[in-house]
């Protein structure tokens, strides 16, 4: 199994930009493993391995060397067996997906996991792109995954107002979200053993970028909250109708 993990700013990070709003200001920002990659994709892969009593969980990250200490070591401490880092800056979804696909092509993974989306670029694109590049089935936004037998898995996928129950044969790509697994905190043994697990560093493949970030902008600050007398909630209804025009 391969789990794609990404580095993102911590949930509570202050978002600011520099260089004339062209660059994310990383000053004072703590980085973490993207939550849905860690809590759902990685943990479910490890659970499946534990259940089978066999198999390997490899994590892959496209990013600079510092990502080894920020995200890769943690993934190994939680229970991944080994890691691959593609030594490149992940600026474009197609670029990242093509790096992952290039590695996965020769490795015959049975399942390739991603998280639902990263909390920085919120694209939800990597899983689908990897699947198409490798010509594999893709289950997006899955909140459960069970193995039925050695060839087939069952999954549920969240859709608007409902869920789909699916079956798919290996190999496939799946994006994981809440419900798939529970967060695991690495224990001391995991942290110690992570140090001796192998990290393979590969140079990036030449890939055309499809998109480029031109500029960032912070949303206009919300105007100060207008407080309404709790004795007269009908005033709220009037304002929502006449002023905000939403009802």
């Amino acid at each position: 199994m391969l789990v794609c993990i990404s580095k993102t700013p911590d949930t509570t990070a202050k978002i600011a930009f520099t260089n004339n709003n062209s660059t994310f200001d990383t000053n004072g920002v703590t980085f973490i493993m993207n939550p849905t990659d860690e809590w759902y994709a990685l943990v479910r892969a490890i659970e499946i391995k534990e259940q089978l009593g066999s198999g390997t969980v490899t994590v892959i990250n496209v990013g600079p060397k510092e990502n080894e200490s920020i995200v890769i070591q943690k993934a190994l401490a939680i229970g991944a067996d080994n890691a691959v880092r593609i030594d490149a800056t992940p600026d474009d979804a197609h670029f990242v997906a093509a790096q992952i696909a290039a590695h996965a092509e020769s490795e015959n993974y049975d399942i390739i996991f991603t998280g639902k989306e990263t909390i920085d670029y919120n694209g939800s694109s990597i899983g689908g792109m990897v699947a198409e590049l490798l010509n594999l089935p893709y289950i997006s936004l899955a909140n459960s995954l069970q193995l039925i037998n050695t060839t087939t898995a069952a999954a549920t996928r969240e859709i608007e107002g409902g869920v789909e129950e699916l079956e798919v044969d290996f190999p496939f790509v799946i994006s994981a979200q809440k419900g798939m697994a529970e967060q695991r905190i690495p224990n001391m043994r995991g942290i110690m053993s992570a140090r001796s697990k192998p990290i393979t560093v590969l140079p990036p493949k030449a890939v055309t970028e499809f998109t480029a970030i031109i500029a960032y902008e912070l949303p206009p600050a919300r105007t100060q909250v207008k407080l309404i007398d709790p004795e007269h909630p009908e005033e709220l209804i009037r304002l929502l109708h006449e002023q905000a025009k939403v009802i």
Partner: peptide, 24 residues
């Protein structure tokens, strides 16, 4: 639309058509 189906189709289509995607 960036809904449950769109999130699954758009990235695949991006590869098929070699077309850049802005998701969201």
């Amino acid at each position: 639309s960036q809904n449950s189906n769109g999130k699954a189709i758009a990235p695949r289509l991006s590869i098929r058509l070699q077309a850049g995607l802005v998701a969201g």
